[in-house]
Each structure stands twice: as structure tokens, then as C-alpha cells.
Write a protein that binds this DNA or RNA. Structure first.
Lengths: 159, 159
DNA sequence: CGGTATTAGTTTCATCTGTAACCAATGTCC
DNA sequence: GGACATTGGTTACAGATGAAACTAATACCG
């Protein structure tokens, strides 16, 4: 019997003990943590890249010319995290910042040729890891998963 | 149209750009992070309790007499994290450690009366937050979610 | 214009987290 | 029973993270 089935047999009455292993917020945290850690190690080993750095590169790979603020808006990272990731990427020669003609505070960010070369190598790795995670799910499962995550995210905003 | 539906219309071919917002590991991290942060704030405000401390109390509430190692085995926390959470709970008078008769290294952990009183107040809050997260999901959705998380966790082990 | 409020981004500092080193008690093997 | 490995748990140190203060440039408004 799967653990989902085991859980299902145990209806959570109000006075039943709260089992951490069945508690959704806990399960989500454990799952996301396991995935993030495994992926972070791969990116670090292969490219010396942290997760925040990878996120910045992933955005710039699709949308060159974003500012740091725009990167921060597009992710759950705050501006401090973005600033640090960008600094580190610039130091590594993977990203360049160019002054914005209209606003002297802003810096337009983009991948350098070296950064773009690395980007083209990370994307297939990312796809492979995602595929490995989804290997046992058919198209219907995947659609259901996407939909559930959307709904949970919306609900999480109300917490 | 839901964002899941939007995603579905955009089949991820090997050469399509990788969109961070559709990338499962990223989505899981963002979701789990949003949930954890919201809940951590509630526990902190209401009980001065961190997530690791809450996890320890949740385990001890169901299984008094666990050792720190057993707590570490039952969660993704390592023994250092458990040690710190336990220390803090003991300092706050919420957990007590008693010497194990058979093995002088081990300490049997359990909630103090004060800890148990807090525990009885947290559990309903935890259930309420979980219910709020699941509010829009019917029984079938919830079973599917449980099952998907199980399968993703299994797949995550292979990364 | 000139003063004040905003915004972009960085720096600072305090806390958290993780890895490794460590100490003490027990188990193992001869 | 004594050396050595193992286990339970803590300590120490380093790097990551987050909130708030700060700097510099722009926008707003009289």
C-alpha cells in the first residue's frame, strides 16, 4: 500500500493526533528541500553556481536587459539576494551590467558571451533533472500537478 | 484561463526557452517557501516557536520519550538542528530531557506540562492553516496531491 | 527652481544554517 | 580487560540569509 493510501485510511478528525509526516506544509517543505538541495549540488559541482545565481541567469537568458529590481519582482528573491547574486555573477564574468541611459540608478543586466555559453549548458541539465523528477508521471498527472501547485500558491497568499 | 492551462499550451520542446516560472523545481521551492514563511510567522508570533522547534514538539506530542537521534531520523533535520531546537525548548521550559537508564549518552525527551499546554494550542492552529491551504481542493484533489507528493519524493531521492 | 519623497541598489549587522571537529559513553574484537 | 571503532550529542567556525540603515539618482510638488 502506498503511503498516500495509508494516509487516506486515517481520516484526520479534529481530535486525532497531528502526524507531522501527514501535515501538508511539512510535506511540501521536505519535498522542496530535497529537490532544491539535490539540484543545488549539481549546479554547484558543474558550474559553481548557486540557486540564486542560476535563477538570475535563467531570467537573463530569456529576457536580457532586465534590471535588478525587475529580477527581484519576477522571483521570490528580495533585492539584497539579487544584488549579491548579480555581484557574484559579474565577478565571475558571466553577467555584465550596463548603465541605463534614462535612469542613472538602474543597470541593465545581460549575460556575457561566457555567461551565455554556460547558460546553454545549464538548460539541458535543468531539463534533464526536471524530467527525472517527473519520470513516473503521465501527462494527466503533470497537468494535475501544475494545477494543484497553482491553487496551493493562491491559497498560500491568504495565509 | 488558468496558468496551468496556459502552461499546457506551450509544450516544452528541447529548444524552447526554459521559463523559470514553469520549471517544477522552482515552482516547488517558491510554493514551499511561501507556505513555510507564512506559517513560521504565525508560530513565532503566537508561541515564539521556530519551525525546527515546532517539529520537535509535534513529534514529542505524539511520541514522548524519543531521543534527539530519533527525532533527527524522523525528519530532514540533522542532529545539529535538533540539538539546537531541543536546547532552546529546554531553556524555555517546554521540553525536559531525562537520562536514559540503559545508555548514558541518550536523553529521553518529552514535553513538560507547560510544553504540553502549548502543544494543545498549536495543533488546532496548524490544522486551521492546513485547512486554509486545502480549502479549494475536494477529496479527490487531496488524494491526488498526496499521491503526487509521494511520487515526487521518491523521484527526488534519485537526483 | 528647491525641497521632499521615492526608487535602485549596496552595505551593515545580527541571526540562521551547515559542515566539521570534538567529547563522552558504549560496543566490538582479540 | 584493553585498544579501537561507533554512536549520541554539543561546540566551533564559516558561509548564507534577512531586516534595516544607508547612498545616490530621479520624481513630485509647491
Amino acid at each position: 500500500m502506498s503511503s498516500a493510501a495509508r494516509r487516506k485510511e486515517r481520516p484526520a478528525k479534529a481530535d486525532a493526533p497531528l502526524l507531522l509526516e501527514d501535515f501538508l506544509p511539512y510535506r511540501l517543505a521536505v519535498l522542496a528541500n530535497a529537490v532544491s538541495r539535490a539540484i543545488a549540488r549539481r549546479y554547484e559541482d558543474a558550474f559553481g553556481l548557486s540557486i540564486p545565481e542560476w535563477r538570475v541567469m535563467a531570467l537573463l537568458g530569456v529576457s536580457p536587459g532586465l534590471t535588478a529590481s525587475e529580477v527581484a519582482e519576477a522571483t521570490p528573491m528580495d533585492k539584497v539576494a539579487v544584488s549579491r547574486a548579480v555581484r557574484s555573477l559579474i565577478d565571475a564574468g558571466r553577467v555584465k551590467a550596463s548603465a541605463d541611459a534614462e535612469d542613472g540608478r538602474r543597470q541593465r543586466l545581460s549575460l556575457t558571451p561566457a555567461g551565455a555559453a554556460i547558460y546553454r549548458r545549464i538548460v539541458p541539465l535543468a531539463r534533464t533533472l526536471e524530467a527525472q523528477l517527473l519520470a513516473d508521471l503521465d501527462a494527466g498527472d503533470r497537468a494535475a500537478l501544475d494545477d494543484l501547485i497553482d491553487r496551493l500558491e493562491a491559497a498560500a497568499q491568504t495565509l
